Simulated assay, not measured.
Amino acid sequence: MEDFIAESQNSKEILNSAKLLQSVNIHALIFGEIGVGKKTLAKYIVPNAVLFDARELQNDIVQNLIDIKKESIIIDKIENVTNVDLLIKWIEDNEIRVIATTKASNLNPKFLELFSITLNIPPLSQREEDLKLLTQKFSNEASKVLRVDKIIPSKLMLNTTKNAHSLRKSIYFSYLFETIGEDEILMFLENYMLANLKGDNSYKDFLYLFEVPLLKASKKKYKSQVQMAKHLGLNRITLRKKLEIHEELL
């Protein structure tokens, strides 16, 4: 079973609470963004529990397809349950212990009454030590799976917008990027554009695919807009306009 990484202080506190939950028979809710480790933590609390998708579990209960009594289960994405009363009655009638996960901040109040404790897992941006360990883990994994030498950390392109999900994908991409050249990059762009080419303003629609990564790279490499404009061969007014146009993507 995959371990819940807890090197950061806030993660250590969450793991300590999870350890206590292993020995007490109460319902618990695990809240957090996508990719923060909710299911991993739930499996840590109840290692032998069956994992159910909330929507599928509700359908099985409605159709009377499930026969479980006096067991612990994990319900993933409990915010997707539409018949809350049905699920709670089934839990109570069959003496089920539930560890549930959710990314919803506005969960049905009846669920909030059901769960005795809530564990809130912060995003990786607030867990610096955990991020380092996950980066090392995914880097080792990518090197082994792709059968290439490990690349130095400074060459890894790290995307944590979806926490561990996007981090893992970006690290694999970093390894793949090391093996491709300009011809392959142009081929990828050509195939993407070919599949999505439509409308009467395609040139303008696709221009951001070139401009955004170039502007991002320039912002990282040069200390000021003056230096960016000089090395990109643009005047400062043109550069400023482009930065404003692509502000949301930068």
Rank of each mutant, 00 (worst) to 15 (best):
F4A: 10
A6V: 05
E13T: 11
A18E: 10
N25F: 05
H27I: 12
H27P: 10
I30M: 10
E33Q: 13
T40R: 14
A42H: 00
Y44G: 05
N48S: 08
A49T: 11
I61M: 10
I61E: 12
L65R: 15
I66N: 13
I68G: 08
E71T: 14
E71Y: 09
I75L: 09
D76L: 02
I78L: 13
E79N: 14
V81T: 13
T82N: 14
V84Q: 10
I91E: 04
N94G: 03
R97Y: 04
R97Q: 11
I99E: 03
T101Q: 00
T101P: 06
T102Y: 01
S105N: 02
L107I: 08
L112G: 07
E113D: 15
I117T: 07
T118I: 14
P122T: 09
D130F: 01
K132C: 01
S139G: 11
A142I: 09
L146T: 07
D149C: 00
I152T: 13
T160W: 00
T161Q: 15
T161P: 03
T161V: 14
K162F: 12
N163L: 08
N163K: 10
H165Y: 14
I171G: 00
Y175E: 00
E178K: 07
G181T: 01
D183P: 02
E184K: 15
I185C: 08
L189A: 12
E190Q: 04
N191K: 15
Y192G: 04
L197D: 05
N201Y: 02
S202D: 04
L209S: 00
L209W: 03
E211T: 07
L215R: 02
K216P: 06
Y222K: 14
K230W: 02
R236K: 12
L239F: 13
R240M: 12
K241N: 11
K242F: 06
L243D: 00
L249K: 14
